[in-house]
């Protein structure tokens, strides 16, 4: 998946949750949204981008991805 697109989408989700006054809630909201709506290869893509330095990701997104990484990691691919 195009990493730049994933970054853009992730940041837009983050922009919505950034309005939440409690930062932990905002990060949980962002990560929860990715878990509920992003297909595994998209989550895998954004986490790989994070591992590659996370260029372009908003600070909230970076922090949320790091904090909730375990939840976001897809299971092994079934064929």
């Amino acid at each position: 998946m195009d990493a730049q697109k994933l970054v853009k989408m992730c940041n837009e989700i983050g922009a919505f949750f950034a309005a939440e006054p409690d930062k932990a809630t905002a990060m949980a909201g962002l990560a929860g949204h990715l878990k509920r709506f992003w297909e595994p290869r998209m989550r895998r893509g954004i986490l790989a981008h994070l591992d590659g330095g996370g260029a372009g990701l908003s600070p909230l997104a970076v922090e949320a991805l790091r904090m909730h990484r375990a939840m976001l990691e897809p299971k092994a691919v079934r064929s």
Binding site: F37, W38, E39, P40, M42, P74
Partner: peptide, 9 residues
């Protein structure tokens, strides 16, 4: 148990 791809995805 995982969400699938949306059309743009």
């Amino acid at each position: 148990d995982e969400p699938g791809l949306r059309i743009p995805n």
